[in-house]
Every structure is written in structure tokens, then in C-alpha cells.
Design a protein around this nucleic acid. Structure first.
Length: 1033
RNA sequence: GGGCAGCUAGCUCAGUUGGUUAGAGCGCCACGUUCACACCGUGGAGGUCACAGGUUCGAGUCCUGUGCUGCCCACCA
């Protein structure tokens, strides 16, 4: 006699399964030997988590979905590889380590030096890589653990250098002064994607620049406005529009066009704008025309404070409709001004040092921080009477995502990759459908972004990352280089336009003294972290070497990611994949939602609104977490996950709010006991027990695991220690009705599950399997099997069929809930290890692990719609009787008498089900058929086109029944009225399809019939003497 | 400013090409523990499908507009 524990123990099961899978290396994929056909292949690379910190719920979602795909395909017989690994995450990781260094040791990276800092970051990486890989294993991810990669490891490094070298050789790598987003804290350029904008309170300073030697009729000064007065130290021009009148005309025309189409509500704003234009035309235009003429004449204005003459230039960047119509131009510190500078060939004066202080170009202000310089500049302007006025204003200020400090636009030498040429194949791949993005709507963002083909700035002034494989050498002739690198196919060079050379090589190092007479200096910069990420699908498979893995698994099948890195990562992977290998990196991209908190904010560590996956895995189990996450993965953009703190003392759930989510300790409102949160830092707080952040969402998954466990418990008890095999034949018409139904439902559900996975509809997969396992298999089929198990004539068949159902459910659920299904699979081995499903190898052994069991593939002709309908009617009738019992408070075990009045076709379907009805509803059915008739005063209910009468004798609470019937009848009358109205409408009769009209008529008839019955019963009840005993007795 | 998405039960979400009386899980209410499972069972209550128009015989579903929420892109001195 096998008897399982009453509850599923997820902790023990997780440990056992992990041991089992690891011992068998069931997650490993071997490339076939060169030359032999790989067969059906499914491959996937993990979006490598950053080694900045531990995994959060978003990673858990991402990897769960991947594991669902991977486990399914593996069971379906594909040669399946899931490549795991982590990302060095350049800036992010260096920033984290630097910040800690500063906080804990008060040291900057310059105090430590390059080598020592990098050593520290490697130590950090080792710690978090271990943690991350452990978390992935805890989640049950069936990655190929023999192939773990890291974006900064040797293999990826070789790919990075080779890819960069080939870009260089094709002339796609350029060096140039560019205005970059300068992070003064980290002292590096960051890309546009690493910048976020935040509104801060600021001012708008109006500054007067005097004109040099004004002639009669010319103004003595021009006024410009700025939010950053200190930048005037780097001004090299003041701009005015070359044709201000025409520009105002254009603006006015645009406004009038807009006005013609605008809603009345918008009119006041537009009219105000038009008034403003008119006013400017009157008051400002003459001045602007004069200034434009002065600009054409090459006149100058005097830069305040530095007393430098700078040209007045005519440039369309100056908008006559805004401000004073004139704008100061600081080409080295403003993106738009930079463009003007290029157009007007202006000098570009950089006034900043890398650390954000002002340099010598700022004259007497040099050495000051930007903040101090601003104060001084403003004070000096005021003292000189050159500050016209100051406005308060909210300013969208750019901040570095990495250091959270304000970004300074900064002119610096940077490396760029030209995108124009290499982006096109990536556009074509998605536009042509060779890469399919699911859901499709995300393709637009990808295409829009790529079509801009903006150059990619790839250099970072950091120490953590792939060193740019470029060396500088000066003072030699090309012939010297040719001599030095004769026979080196892995070296290329180009003039640096300052008389020196850039030498690029895919070799790891070039000796310093390679070129006679002059040293080779390695470029100090490292590459943008996305450069190595862009190579991930092919670099992890061994490129540039022609490995068997690359041949077998590239292109990969699917990429699973969230929408926020569609451009940063996905697009660049396509670009570089095609550039390096000539092939797209993946065929499909599955985009999944992001998880938000109850306020719709993204979860993040710094906000403190997250859930730690480990908390869920420990308290409710990895399967519970996975099931919940899969259920949330719908096709919408985001999903919300309200979070609670669980009191470690009493288990009470405390809603997480904006107010309490960053507190280091909280007091349980129920038991009063304090507990600590992730923010606990003080010794006193750390001594308290931890109150994990959880969500009730995960409980459904835990309950489901337990339901499966207990269904298994029932099946094993019913087998009573005997092997439940061989299994019954499933494709024979001789099956009993319930079994035919089960077989049909299994076939339907397998088909739905397969389709859901093929379409990346993870939530639907979870929902279909949950509903089938719980409501149909456990609540219906399993209940029905109880009387059959008690009957020796049916016992063996019932046992076998229970195994068939359970086995199939386990296999279908395994990709979502690997642990509980594996644990049950192991339990079944002892008693039913000899069972073979039709899709199993009939001769070979049943696989040791469910991981390698075959995915169920029942033939389509198992689906029997008539039987499924029949079962639907049966369950509806059972429900109707139960409803009557419940509303009359009949004790559960009291057997009642029932009559089912059913039209002939339904009666025929139901008749074979009578024993089941009698068992599940605890009634004796005394009559069934079109003429069956309930005893007077019986309680009634309708279901599946039948009317069910339950003779309650003394049980009936007449008053309650009358009230219910009156309500019910009124409702029915309402429906009848609406149906009649619909059918009376000539247009409906004329235009609706005949089938719809017929259906409406049938429904009306049924409703009228129901109302007639209801009214009759009501009349009869009212005629009876009142009975004040609700439950009889 | 441009674009994308969302708004359906108290909460989180389904709702496939328009066609009965719009569903699930959780929560809530009532009843029920010698029954595989109280991490359970049975039943119930709860919705003007954000709002306003339109198309249609018929709209949660299609169209237009409005409001609110979130995200992406660009950004005005």
C-alpha cells in the first residue's frame, strides 16, 4: 500500500529533482558530429542577466517562459539547447562597485588604479554570477549547465575582437569628436539609452550681449535666454534666423491649418499663439531683420564676462517665435548648438574637465564646479548689469541612468560604428518576416529605431569591459607599418588624420615595440557593453571558430525578452549576427510583459517595491512561482502584481504601500511583532526576523501543486499496490462513456496546449491545463471513478484510465511545473513504472525522468464532440440538483428523489449517465424523458434544456422558494421581452443569418416554456399552507 | 510634440473572425470535515465592459472623438 503524505513538500521535491536532473545531465545538448544531420533542433540563448546583482521577479518571468519552451521542445523530441550565461554589464557593474568603494572605503577608482579596480569587479562578478546561476537552478531552469558563458570571458572576447576588427577593416569604425552624454561621476560617455530625463526646478536667465560698434539704427545689445548660464563661457556665436519674416509666416500658416482642424477646446490656446505671432511681427520683427542683416554682414557681439568678440550668425536654429528670437551658441556643450557649430564652421570651445570642473578655457572660472561656476557667473552678470531678468522654470534635466547624476553634454573623442550600411539587413529581416516578432505590434518600434540608422557610439571611458582592440602609433610612415605587420592577416590600420595611425587587430595584444622606433599605445577605452551582448547568439556557440555547435544550433530558434531592450539589444543582435555570420541570429522573438507593482510602477530594487523570487521559492515552491508567472504572461504590455509583507510571527499579510516599502522595519498590525525588511541596516533591525515580500498570486500555484499531489495520492491508493498496467486500449468504441469523454478531452487539451505554446500564449497554456486538471479531471472524472473502483467488474478499467489521465496531465504540465510533476513521476514509477502510453516507445523502458518523456500527441480522431456535449449536459444537471440542495439547505448526505424532464435527444444523452448523476448529486432519479413530471411542489431548476424537479417533501422552505421563483420569473420575463422585440424587428429577420434567427426563436420558445413552468410552480406553492420549517426534520 | 498599449466583478486578468443571459483565479457570503486534498468541497452574491458619438438587424469586440494610466521616442534657447 502506497500512501503519500497529505501535502506536497516542495522543498524536498526540489532538492531531489535537481539531484536527479544533474546526475543525468538531462539538460545537456550535444551537437551532432560534423557531417551528420542534426535532426529537429530547438535552441535558445538566455538574455544574460547582469552581474550587478541578484535576479528579480522580471528575470524569473523571463526565464520561466524560456524554460516552458525548452522543456516542451525537448519532450517533443527536438535536439534542444538552452545556452545560459551572464553579462558583465560594463558601466552598471563598475558603477555599483565604485559606489561601494566610495561608501565603505572613501576611495575613488583613481585611488585604486585600473588593475586593482578590475580585480575588485571580478570578485564581485564571481560572487553574483554564482548567486544568479544558483537562482536559475532554484527556478528549475533546464539550461545546459555544461556551457555557461560570460560576456567578458575568453571565448566572447575573441568574438568581440574579431567582430570589431572586421568592422574596422571595412571602414565602418570611425573616430571623431562628438558631443556625448558625459557622466561626470563615472567620467565616461554614456549612450542616449543610458540617460533618463527628470524634471527639476530651475531658472531661465535672460542675458544681454552687447553689440560690437553698433551703427545708427542698430541695437546696442541682443538678449538671449538660457537655463545654463555658465555655458556662455563656451559660447562661440549668437544666432538669429536668416529670414525671420518668412519663418513667422510659416509658423502662422501652420497654426492656422491646425486651427481649422482643431476641436473647440483647443482654440483658445491656438488663438493665443496667433496673437503672440502678430505681436512679434509688430514689436520684434524689425529688430530681428536688422540682426539678420548684421549677421550677413559678419558683425559681432561681445561675450559677457570674458569680453570676447563672437560672431552673430544667421541660422535657422534660432526661432523668431520663441524667446527673444536670438539664441546663444555653445557648440561643445549642447547637441543643437553643436549642429549649428558644424553648419557655421564655428570654433568649439570645451570648457569642462572630465570631472565636471571648468577648465582653462573658462578663464577666471577655471577649477570651479559647474554649480559654483553658475552662481559666480550669475552674480557677475548681475553686477555688470547684463542680467535682464530671471524666470522660474521647470527643466527636463538629463541624468545618467548609471550614476544618477546630471549629464553634461561634452565634446570628446569617441569611437563610432557607422550603421547606415549594416542596419539595412536587420531592417529587411523583420520587414520581410524572416524574423517574426510576437506580438507583432512591437515590430514597428524595432523598424522605426533602426531606420534612423544613427551611428553607434561604442567607446566608454571605463575600466571594466572589452578593451577596444586599437593601438595608436605616431611618427611612422605607412611603409613602416606594412613592414612591421607583413603577413599578419589579423591587423589593419588607418591614418588618424593627425599624422599618426590607428592600428586594429583581432589579436589579444600587440607588442608595444612591434613598429620599429615608435611605441604602440593600446587605446585605454573599453567597448559599450551592448557590443558583446550583440554577439551573444553566435559568440556563445563558438564563433569565429566553425564549431559543431555553431553549425547545429545557429541560427537559434527563439529569443524571449521584454520589450524595453528590443532596440538596445535585439536590433543590435540582428545587425551583428548578420554582419558576422551572414545569417539572422533567431527566427522568432517572443516579447513578454513587464511586472509592475500595485501602483503601476516598475519593480526595482532601489524603489523597494519588488518581490524576491527566492522568498516565493522557499515559502510556496518554484512551481507555484512559475505557474503564477506563466499565468500572467498575456499579450498585454504590463501586468500588475500587488505585493504584501508577510509577518514572520503570525503570517499576517500587510499591504505594501509607497509609505512602508522603504522602511527598514515594520510592526505587524495584527500581532504587533516587529520584523525587518530588505532595507534593514542597523544591528537592532537586522536582529529581527525577516518579513518576506510576497504576493497572494503565488498561492494559486501552490494550491494547484497540492491538488496534483493529492490526485496522485488518490490514484495510488486506488491501485492499492498493484501495478496499473497494461493500460486500457484508448481507441476502441467499447470504452465506457466516462472514459470516452476523458480520451476525447485529453486529445482536445493536448491540441490546445500545443497551439498555445506554438503561439507563445503562456497564460492560456496555464489556464487550459489548470481548468482541465482541476475541474474536469479531479472534480468530475475522479469523482466518477469512485463507484467504479468499488465495483470489481469495472475496477481494473477505472484504475488504468486514472493512470492515463494523470500521466498525460503530468506531461502537459511539466514545462510549467517541473518539480511537482517530476516528483509524482518518480512516485508512479514504483507502482506503475511499466505503463506505456500510445506515444511512448512500446518496447523501451519508460524514461527515468519526465524531462525526457514524450510529449503526448493523441490522434485528432480521439476527439468526440458528441460525448463532450453529453458530458456538458450531465455536469449541468448535476449542478442544477446541487443548486436546489444548497438553496434549501439539504444536508449533503440526505438522498433525495429527482425527476428530469428532458427533450428526447437530451434524455438519450443523459440516460447512460444516470448512475453518475445519482452518485454525484446524491439523488435517486425516478423518471427521465420528455413526459417526466415532477411531483407537485417539487423544487425546480433548469439546465441544459432540461427541467429538474427535486422532491424535497418536508425540506422545502416555501417562503424562500416563492421569493426565489418570483425573482427568477421576473428575470425570465425580461429576457423574453428583449427576445420578442428582437424577433419582431423586420430588419433582423431580413438581414441576420437564418441560423441566428432560428437560434433566437428556439431560445424564445425555451424561455417561454421556462416561464410557464415557473409560474405554475409558483401558483402551486402559493396555494400550499405555509411551512415554517426550512429544513424539515 | 510623435508613437504604442491599457481602461471588463473589490483585486489581478481572460474574452479568438461582431451573434444566447460577458468568464477565471483570489477575495467576500452561506453550508459542509471519519470521503485524495480545508493548500479542500458545494452553492451564492458581485459587472451600464472608462465616457460620448457612429457603423450594423445586432457592438465588450469595428470606426471617430474625449478622459485617465503606463511605456517608448524626440525635445525648444
Amino acid at each position: 500500500m502506497t500512501e503519500l503524505a497529505k501535502h506536497y513538500d516542495h522543498r524536498a521535491a526540489q532538492a531531489r529533482c535537481r539531484t536527479l536532473w544533474d546526475a543525468a545531465r538531462a539538460w545537456h545538448a550535444e551537437a551532432p558530429p560534423a557531417g551528420s544531420p542534426p535532426g529537429r533542433v530547438f535552441s535558445l540563448v538566455i538574455p544574460p542577466p547582469n552581474v550587478t546583482g541578484a535576479l528579480h521577479l522580471g528575470h524569473a518571468l523571463n526565464t520561466t517562459l524560456q524554460d516552458i519552451l525548452v522543456r516542451t521542445r525537448r519532450m517533443q523530441g527536438y535536439r534542444t539547447l538552452w545556452m545560459p550565461g551572464t553579462d558583465h554589464a560594463g558601466i552598471a557593474t563598475q558603477a555599483v562597485v565604485e559606489r561601494r568603494l566610495l561608501e565603505e572605503e572613501k576611495l575613488s577608482r583613481h585611488d585604486l588604479g585600473r588593475e586593482a579596480l578590475v580585480t575588485r569587479i571580478w570578485a564581485w562578478k564571481e560572487q553574483y554570477e554564482k548567486r544568479i546561476l544558483g537562482q536559475l537552478r532554484d527556478l528549475g531552469c533546464s539550461c545546459d549547465w555544461d556551457r555557461v558563458r560570460f560576456t567578458l570571458d575568453e571565448q566572447c572576447g575573441a568574438a568581440v575582437r574579431t567582430a570589431f576588427f572586421q568592422l574596422f577593416r571595412q571602414g565602418l569604425v570611425r573616430r571623431g569628436k562628438r558631443l556625448v552624454n558625459w557622466d561626470t561621476f563615472l567620467q565616461t560617455a554614456v549612450s542616449d539609452d543610458e540617460v533618463f530625463h527628470e524634471e527639476v526646478k530651475g531658472h531661465f536667465w535672460h542675458i544681454r550681449y552687447s553689440c560690437v560698434d553698433p551703427r545708427p539704427g542698430e541695437p546696442a545689445s541682443v538678449t538671449v535666454a538660457t537655463t545654463r548660464p555658465e555655458t556662455l563661457l563656451g559660447d562661440t556665436a549668437v544666432a538669429v534666423h536668416p529670414a525671420p519674416a518668412a519663418a513667422l509666416d510659416a509658423v502662422e500658416h501652420e497654426l492656422r491649418t491646425k486651427r481649422a482642424l482643431a476641436a473647440s477646446k483647443e482654440l483658445p490656446a491656438i488663438d493665443a499663439a496667433l496673437d503672440d505671432i502678430a505681436e512679434r511681427r509688430r514689436d520684434l520683427l524689425p529688430l530681428l531683420e536688422t540682426l539678420a542683416a548684421m549677421a550677413r554682414a559678419g558683425r559681432q557681439v561681445r561675450l559677457p564676462l570674458l569680453d570676447r568678440g563672437i560672431p552673430l550668425v544667421a541660422d535657422e536654429w534660432a526661432k523668431p517665435e520663441l524667446g527673444s528670437g536670438c539664441v546663444k551658441i555653445t557648440p561643445a556643450h549642447d547637441p543643437n548648438d553643436y549642429e549649428v557649430g558644424l553648419r557655421q564652421r564655428l570654433p568649439m570651445v570645451n570648457i569642462l574637465n572630465p570631472d565636471g570642473t571648468l577648465n582653462a578655457a573658462a578663464g577666471t572660472y577655471s577649477g570651479l564646479t559647474i554649480r559654483k561656476a553658475r552662481e559666480r557667473v550669475v552674480a557677475d552678470l548681475e553686477a555688470n548689469g547684463q542680467l535682464e531678468r530671471v524666470e522660474d522654470r521647470l527643466i527636463e534635466l538629463a541624468h545618467s541612468d548609471r550614476s544618477k547624476t546630471p549629464i553634461e553634454p561634452y565634446l570628446a573623442d569617441q569611437w563610432f560604428i557607422q550603421m547606415a550600411e549594416i542596419a539595412q539587413p536587420a531592417i529587411d529581416a523583420v520587414a520581410s518576416g524572416r524574423i517574426r516578432i510576437v506580438p507583432e505590434r512591437y515590430a514597428k518600434g524595432y523598424l522605426d529605431w533602426l531606420s534612423e540608422k544613427r551611428d553607434w557610439p561604442v567607446s566608454r571611458q571605463l575600466w571594466w569591459g572589452h578593451r577596444i582592440p586599437i593601438w595608436h602609433v605616431a611618427g611612422v610612415a605607412e611603409i613602416d607599418l606594412a613592414a612591421a605587420f607583413a603577413g599578419h592577416a589579423t591587423v589593419a590600420w588607418r591614418s588618424d588624420e593627425a599624422g599618426g595611425w590607428f592600428v586594429c587587430s583581432s589579436d589579444e595584444t600587440l607588442p608595444r615595440d612591434t613598429v620599429a622606433g615608435q611605441p604602440l599605445i593600446h587605446d585605454p577605452d573599453v567597448l559599450d557593453t551592448w557590443f558583446s551582448s550583440a554577439l551573444w547568439p553566435h559568440s556563445t556557440l563558438g564563433w569565429p571558430a566553425a564549431t559543431p555547435e555553431l553549425a547545429a544550433f545557429y541560427p537559434t530558434s527563439t529569443l524571449v525578452t521584454s520589450r524595453d531592450i528590443l532596440t538596445l539589444w535585439v536590433a543590435r543582435m540582428v545587425i551583428m549576427g548578420v554582419f558576422d555570420t551572414g545569417q539572422i541570429p533567431f527566427h522568432e522573438v517572443s516579447i513578454h510583459p513587464k511586472i509592475l507593482d500595485r501602483y503601476g510602477e516598475t519593480m526595482s530594487k532601489s524603489k523597494g517595491n519588488g518581490v524576491d523570487p527566492v522568498d516565493v521559492i522557499e515559502t510556496l515552491g518554484a512551481d507555484a512561482l512559475r505557474f503564477a508567472l506563466a499565468g500572467l504572461a498575456t499579450e498585454t504590455q504590463d501586468v500588475r502584481m500587488p505585493v504584501e509583507f508577510q509577518c514572520p510571527a503570525c503570517g499576517h499579510l500587510l499591504e505594501q504601500t509607497t509609505a512602508n516599502r522603504t522602511k527598514p522595519r515594520l510592526d505587524c498590525p495584527k500581532c504587533g511583532q516587529p520584523f525587518r525588511t530588505q532595507w534593514a541596516a542597523s544591528e537592532a533591525d537586522l536582529a529581527l526576523p525577516r518579513g518576506p515580500a510576497v504576493s497572494e498570486k503565488f498561492e494559486a500555484g501552490r494550491n494547484f501543486s497540492n491538488k496534483l499531489w493529492n490526485a496522485t495520492r488518490f490514484v495510488l491508493m486506488s491501485l492499492d499496490g498493484r501495478p496499473g498496467e497494461p493500460l486500457p486500449a484508448l481507441d476502441t468504441p467499447a470504452l465506457e462513456l466516462a472514459d470516452r469523454w476523458l480520451v476525447s478531452r485529453l486529445a482536445s487539451v493536448c491540441r490546445e496546449a500545443r497551439q498555445a505554446i506554438d503561439d507563445y500564449r503562456y497564460a492560456e497554456l496555464a489556464r487550459v491545463l489548470y481548468g482541465f486538471a482541476w475541474d474536469e479531471f479531479c472534480s468530475a472524472y475522479l469523482e466518477l471513478s469512485k463507484p467504479r473502483l468499488a465495483d470489481p467488474a469495472h475496477r481494473d478499467q477505472a484504475r488504468g484510465m486514472l493512470l492515463v489521465g494523470l500521466d498525460t496531465i503530468l506531461r502537459l504540465l511539466h514545462p510549467i511545473m517541473p518539480f511537482v510533476t517530476e516528483e509524482i513521476w518518480q512516485q508512479l514509477r514504483t507502482v506503475a513504472g511499466g505503463r506505456r502510453m500510445p506515444w511512448d516507445d512500446p518496447c523501451g523502458p519508460l524514461p527515468d525522468s519526465i524531462m525526457t518523456a514524450r510529449w503526448p500527441e493523441p490522434p485528432a480522431d480521439w476527439i468526440d464532440e458528441r460525448t463532450e456535449r453529453q458530458f456538458g449536459s450531465f455536469l449541468a444537471v448535476v449542478g442544477a440538483i446541487r443548486e436546489i440542495r444548497a438553496r434549501q439547505n439539504v444536508p449533503p448526505r440526505t438522498r433525495l428523489l429527482a425527476v428530469i424532464k428532458a427533450p428526447l435527444p437530451v434524455a438519450e444523452l443523459l440516460e447512460p449517465m444516470l448512475p453518475a448523476i445519482q452518485g454525484m448529486a446524491v439523488v435517486d432519479v425516478t423518471a427521465i424523458g420528455p413526459d417526466a413530471c415532477g411531483s407537485p411542489g417539487a423544487a425546480t431548476a433548469t439546465a441544459a434544456g432540461c427541467e429538474v424537479f427535486v422532491d424535497l417533501a418536508d425540506f422545502v422552505d416555501i417562503a424562500a422558494e416563492i421569493a426565489r421563483l418570483e425573482k427568477d420569473n421576473a428575470k425570465t420575463e425580461g429576457f423574453i421581452e428583449s427576445k420578442r422585440k428582437k424577433l419582431a424587428d423586420e430588419k433582423f429577420a431580413a438581414r441576420a443569418p437564418e441560423a441566428v434567427v432560428a437560434k433566437e426563436r428556439a431560445q424564445l420558445a425555451e424561455l417561454e416554456d421556462r416561464l410557464g413552468k415557473g409560474q405554475a410552480t409558483l401558483a402551486e406553492l402559493k396555494a400550499r399552507p405555509a411551512n415554517d420549517s426550512a429544513t424539515g426534520g
